[in-house]
Nucleic acid binder design. Structure first.
Lengths: 188, 188
DNA sequence: CTACAAAACTAACAATTGTTAGTTATTGAT
DNA sequence: ATCAATAACTAACAATTGTTAGTTTTGTAG
């Protein structure tokens, strides 16, 4: 990334396009047109299409990982930790929902940084699972199958990017409360 | 689709590739190689790449829609209906998880049949929402925000395709019970 | 064995892809 | 006003894309 602000602009516009059609279906000419310049001019600011993808995905993946690390180490109760995890997902998704689409759907097209991404993703899931497990051991949570719980909560949180943009009206605090209630307490 | 069984083979193999990389990143030469033939030979059986995508997505989308129509019309309680919806998702996903990936991630690349797909998808969601709403009106379900409930349950069900292949050991009936419990009753 | 249909092949096409080279315009500090 | 850096441009490239035309192989029914 040669310049700073112009490069970030390219990443921002690209992630919008990635959300619509996916990384592979977006051409550098699409990106250039959305920027109002010619395709070749992009290369004054970026080293290639791959760099755009990496810059779209990795910084956000790192925010998620650092966030859950912080939560894990803090002296909160299990209940509070789960609430904070949900809150972090909502906050980060509200700030980066275009990039979240690539993070969810286009990570497999990372070339140089695929391994690093998988470390972050697996690390995140591991910590989340550890908290869910501790909840059962402390007899705070009650479930049959750990995998089902981890899968269903993470599925919902990872899909927030599809949904949050439409619900900007519902403020984040209320959404955090409502979603926590549904995910943790159920609806019956 | 000129022949029947060979065309279905192409669709089956293609959907496996679509799950790994997405429709756009899979070339007809990739598909041909996976079939053990040359790219041009595919065109003895299909009219084009688009037809493969449509044949991957639409039949399964129709199964989902017809299934939920059946459930809606049946004389079950709300509780039973929701259980049946979860069960249908698990069964169809277990049978078609490769195709489910395209249904979730590549539907926007449909050209001729995009509108038809969107009707099926929106119709499905509408019926599901109606059942959730009826549950509250009959004071069987208890939640703050209808949209949050619809979103979180459908997110989990739509992500099953990422997860069911690994859990073939856990039989479908037990999974249906466990998932229903987690989604509807929560974990606290 | 022959004949015919089904299904594979080779070769090529036009269009599109990401990227590079070389050049011109724009901008901001001295 | 000058100079250097920044950022745009035009033109072209090699590779890859989906697809077509024409030909040969394969398999099966008479």
């Amino acid at each position: 990334m040669k310049s700073k602000s112009r490069g970030a602009e390219i990443v921002a516009i690209s992630s919008k396009l990635f959300k619509q059609k996916g990384y592979t279906a977006v051409t550098v000419r699409d990106i250039a047109e959305a920027m109002g310049i010619k395709a070749a001019s992009l290369y004054n600011h970026i080293s290639g299409k791959q760099e755009i993808l990496a810059e779209t995905i990795l910084p956000v993946a790192e925010l998620f990982y650092e966030g859950i690390l912080q939560i894990e180490r803090s002296p909160m109760t299990i209940h509070e930790k789960l609430g904070e995890i949900i809150k972090q997902h909502i906050e980060l998704t509200a700030n980066y929902y275009y990039k979240m689409a690539a993070l969810n759907n286009d990570w497999m097209h990372l070339e140089g940084d695929l391994e690093k991404f998988l470390c972050l993703r697996n690390g995140y899931e591991e910590i989340f699972r550890k908290i869910i497990r501790a909840g059962k051991e402390e007899e705070i949570l009650n479930y049959q199958d750990e995998e089902v719980v981890v899968f269903s909560i993470l599925s919902t949180l990872r899909n927030l990017y599809l949904w949050i943009p439409k619900k900007a009206k519902l403020d984040q605090e209320r959404l955090t409360q409502n979603l926590s209630k549904v995910l943790l307490d159920g609806v019956f």
